[in-house]
C-alpha cells in the first residue's frame, strides 16, 4: 500500500468515504431484494438463476458501450483517464458472451437469452448510464464504476459459489460471477488512481458520489425486477 493511501490520501479519502457509504447502502438494498433474499436463504431455484442471467445479459451488453462512449467524451487534458476507460471497455465488452454460455450450461436456450428484453430497472439503469456518458468529461461515471465493480469484487464470487452449491451446478454454469470475483481483486487501488486523475475538484467529487447513489438505486431496482 502506498504511503498516500496509508494516510488516507487528502485528495481521495473524502470521496472514497462517501462512496463507501453509498456502497453499503446499495449492498443492504440489494440484500433485501426478493431474489438475493432467496439466494441468501438457500431457496434459489434454477428458474431464478436463469432469470438473473437473462436480465444481467441485457444490461452487460451495454456496459462496454457506455464506457466507450464516456471515453470518447474525455478531453485531452485527461488523456490518461481516457486510456484507462478504453482498456476497461475492451476488457468487458465480451462479458455478455460468458453470461450466455453460463445460461446454456444452466439448461437455458441461447436464442432465449439473446432475444430477452431489459426489465424496467435495466432500462432505467442503461438509459441513465448513456445519458451520463454523453456529457463532456463525464467523470461522475467513476461513481457508477465504483458501485458496479464493487459488486464484482465483493459479491459476485460468493453468489456464484452459493448458486452452484444450491442448484448443484458445475463451475461451467457460474463462470461470469466467479470470474468477476477473481479478477476484480485490486480494484480499489486502480480506482484510487483514476480518482487522482480528476480530483481535487469539489463539483466533480459531488457528481461522482451522486452518480454512485443513483447507480446503486437503479441497479437494485434491476435486481428487484428479476422475475
Amino acid at each position: 500500500m502506498s504511503a498516500r493511501t496509508k494516510e488516507g490520501g487528502a485528495t481521495t479519502a473524502p470521496v472514497l468515504r462517501k462512496l463507501a457509504v453509498a456502497w453499503t447502502d446499495f449492498e443492504a438494498r440489494l440484500d433485501s431484494t426478493p431474489l438475493v433474499r432467496r439466494l441468501n436463504r438457500g431457496l434459489l431455484t434454477i428458474d431464478d438463476y436463469r432469470a438473473l442471467l437473462m436480465n444481467l445479459r441485457q444490461q452487460v451488453v451495454d456496459g462496454a458501450c457506455w464506457i466507450s462512449r464516456a471515453a470518447s467524451n474525455v478531453d485531452e487534458a485527461h488523456f490518461e483517464l481516457r486510456s484507462t476507460l478504453m482498456r476497461h471497455a475492451a476488457t468487458e465488452h465480451r462479458d455478455y458472451r460468458l453470461i450466455e454460455a453460463d445460461y446454456v450450461a444452466a439448461g437455458g436456450r441461447l436464442e432465449d437469452i439473446r432475444s430477452g428484453a431489459k426489465n424496467v430497472g435495466s432500462e432505467a439503469l442503461s438509459a441513465w448510464m448513456f445519458a451520463e456518458a454523453s456529457k463532456p468529461n463525464p467523470f461522475g461515471l467513476l461513481g457508477a464504476m465504483f458501485i458496479i465493480e464493487g459488486l464484482g469484487s465483493i459479491k459476485a464470487a460468493g453468489w456464484g459459489r452459493a448458486i452452484a452449491r444450491q442448484l448443484s451446478l458445475s463451475d461451467e454454469a457460474v463462470r461470469f460471477l466467479v470470474y468477476h470475483g477473481a479478477n476484480d481483486g485490486d480494484h480499489m487501488t486502480e480506482f484510487e488512481a483514476m480518482l487522482a486523475m480528476v480530483l481535487p475538484d469539489p463539483a466533480v467529487e459531488a457528481r461522482i458520489v451522486r452518480c454512485a447513489e443513483v447507480t446503486g438505486r437503479l441497479y437494485a431496482m434491476q435486481i428487484e425486477d428479476v422475475r
Partner: peptide, 20 residues
C-alpha cells in the same frame, strides 16, 4: 458466517456516514 461479512460492511458504512 457468510452473512457476517455483509453485516460488517454495513456497520462500517454506518460509522463512515457518521464521520462524513
Amino acid at each position: 458466517f457468510d452473512q457476517l461479512k455483509a453485516v460488517i460492511r454495513a456497520w462500517v458504512g454506518v460509522y463512515l456516514d457518521k464521520v462524513d
